[in-house]
Amino acid sequence: MPIVRDPLNPKLSMWHFLAFYLRFWREKMGLSLTQCGEIMGVQRGTVSNFEAGRRRPQEDHMRALDKHYGTGWLFQLLLWFARMAHDPDWGRQLVKYEEEAHIIRTYHGQVIPLALQTDEYTWAYVQSGTPKDFEAAMERRSTRKRSFFDRGTDVEMWAVLDESVLAREVGGPQVMKAQLEHLLKLADLPQISLRIIPFKSGAHLGVDGALQVLSLESRDIAYSAAQNGGRLIETPGEVRELSVKFDRIGAAAASLEASRDIIKRYLESYQ
């Protein structure tokens, strides 16, 4: 059975252009997937995934190709530009990385992280947006939540939330009450660490927006949220900067036990 490739549009993003160009040059040089894999030090299937845009190559892969093809810094520069550019397909790629991560470090100052939301809380935010199909949007978010908990203790979440997340009543009193109760239950799970930054902590770096640092098997990936999308960060130096920023934000948070007390205080207001 022939391999069915995902459609690539080199005009869509630098990642699609890089994947397109990888295949173009391999075929121009008359190399098979296996031969190209030997050059990069990966399996045949990995090369196929690179060329289909299903996986993203790293610096050592591009360095090996530049050396073999005699292209100077061409592929290394294409990788650099792909990492720096806005990726319209960032959402799908982020989900893939979340599924691979064994540690997810996340900070939110406006909303409870998706994996920790009740369905009713999630639905309230879905309805506050402008998708063409609310049901489809809800199903996508529910699938992401299930994929996290289906992995059990194979993945850990270290979540830091600003107290303003608890103060914002989402979906009405009953929805918020159930959400706070849900947070307390989740905080008892061994794979979840939940800490709250109290208002009295004052100014902290989290005011710049939500962020995530995902620890994969061989490297870390970062995600910085923004209006109308976000940006995946794969350059090691910038990922380290976001990781340090997460630690500095967390330094302003209360302890695990004190954070539970803060959640309980808000829950009492709904009794």
Results as ranks from 00 to 15, higher is better:
136 A>E: 13
65 L>W: 14
39 I>F: 08
57 P>T: 04
75 F>M: 07
202 G>N: 12
260 R>W: 03
61 H>T: 05
34 T>Y: 08
148 F>G: 04
141 R>P: 07
231 R>N: 13
238 E>G: 00
76 Q>G: 04
159 A>T: 15
74 L>S: 00
33 L>D: 10
105 R>P: 12
126 V>N: 09
10 P>L: 02
44 R>T: 14
119 D>P: 04
102 H>L: 10
263 I>P: 01
119 D>S: 09
166 L>C: 14
127 Q>K: 15
91 G>M: 04
131 P>N: 13
79 L>D: 05
41 G>Q: 11
14 M>W: 14
254 A>C: 07
237 G>P: 00
119 D>I: 11
51 E>F: 08
243 S>P: 00
68 H>I: 02
69 Y>W: 14
18 L>D: 01
163 E>D: 11
56 R>L: 06
98 E>A: 03
200 K>W: 02
34 T>F: 09
246 F>N: 00
228 N>H: 12
133 D>F: 14
77 L>K: 09
267 L>Q: 03
59 E>R: 10
104 I>C: 08
220 D>N: 10
47 V>E: 09
110 Q>K: 12
23 R>S: 08
241 E>V: 14
125 Y>H: 15
243 S>A: 15
181 E>T: 06
116 L>M: 12
49 N>R: 14
203 A>Q: 06
115 A>P: 03
121 Y>L: 11
82 A>V: 03
213 V>Q: 01
236 P>Q: 05
3 I>N: 02
141 R>H: 09
44 R>G: 02
267 L>F: 07
180 L>N: 05
107 Y>I: 04
207 V>N: 00
169 E>H: 09
91 G>R: 07
157 M>A: 14
89 D>A: 07
135 E>I: 10
23 R>H: 08
216 L>F: 12
259 S>W: 01
138 M>D: 05
192 I>S: 01
162 D>S: 15
